[in-house]
């Protein structure tokens, strides 16, 4: 569980996050949605401590993240996995090397154990053995995302963060990635937070959806509720896509 309470964040006097409070549940895929520039990435990075918030509280279960000292924070980071928007794989190491990196850094595993763990993580994201020795530049965007997910789960994190995990992917691959993240979340009972502006993801895996608009919390609910909301800003966002406008009409007409 991750809970944020009344967080504010501004850059050079410009408010980007205004009074956001939300509780992200364990074992669920929690989504943050909103227009481009609404503050999704800033919210995610603030929760992670990559940005310092101006005020508010951030709780990782019963641990207050903002009052922790640097050492505890560093230790806690090992319970966090993150999938960046562009994958952010280390170009200078192979697929395998990317997964092994956190293991080298933070565990006392033997070479054999590491190899097993690397294979386990990569198998979980359906990367074939022959791709293990390739470099990130030699694999497709969809594969890079999957490797990034594998790296994020290498240390068995309790919390998983994904910044637009399926941006730049075709719809089919995007669905595969979404399902993968959801399955991993259920299997390992992680608290997963995903940034997206993809409505397909919202419908598919939006077990809890936070909609932010201009840095403010505008709506919270589930994917079941989202198509029936009466919130005007939310509806403008969702039904910008004609397909969903049609779906809503269909639903209303039974």
């Amino acid at each position: 569980m991750i809970e944020v309470k009344n967080i504010y964040k501004s850059f050079d006097g410009k408010d980007v996050l205004k009074n956001i409070s939300i509780r992200f549940e364990k074992g669920k895929t929690n989504l943050i949605i909103g227009r481009s520039g609404s503050g999704k990435t800033v919210l995610l990075k603030s929760i992670l401590g990559l940005f310092d918030v101006d005020s508010g509280e951030i709780w990782y279960d019963d641990r207050n993240f903002l009052t922790m000292d640097q050492k505890r924070r560093k230790q806690m980071r090992q319970e966090i996995g993150m999938v960046f928007q562009g994958g952010a794989l280390f170009d200078s190491s192979t697929v395998e090397g990317n997964i092994r990196f956190p293991l080298d850094m933070f565990t006392r595993m033997t070479a054999k154990e590491k190899e097993t763990r690397v294979a386990f993580c990569l198998n979980h994201v359906n990367i074939e053995k022959r791709a293990f020795k390739l470099f990130p530049s030699e694999i497709s965007g969809g594969m890079q995302k999957r490797v990034a997910i594998a790296r994020a789960i290498a240390l068995n994190p309790k919390y998983l963060f994904c910044d637009e995990p399926n941006s730049g992917l075709d719809p089919e691959t995007a669905t595969v990635i979404d399902e993968l993240i959801q399955n991993l979340t259920h299997e390992f009972q992680m608290t997963t937070i995903i940034n997206t502006h993809d409505m397909n993801s919202v419908i598919e895996i939006g077990e809890l959806v936070l909609f932010i608009s201009k840095g403010e919390k505008a709506w919270v609910g589930t994917n079941k509720e989202i198509l029936h909301s009466s919130n005007q800003t939310l509806n403008d966002f969702i039904f910008a896509n004609k397909l969903y406008a049609q779906m809503r009409r269909d639903v209303e007409e039974g």
């Binding site: 980071r77 993150m82 952010a88 170009d91």
Partner: peptide
């Protein structure tokens, strides 16, 4: 610089490095 703009540096920081 490339590591910075492709978020590889953030990625290290997130891992607590």
């Amino acid at each position: 610089g490339t590591m910075r703009v492709t978020e590889q540096i953030d990625s290290l920081e997130i891992m607590g490095i």
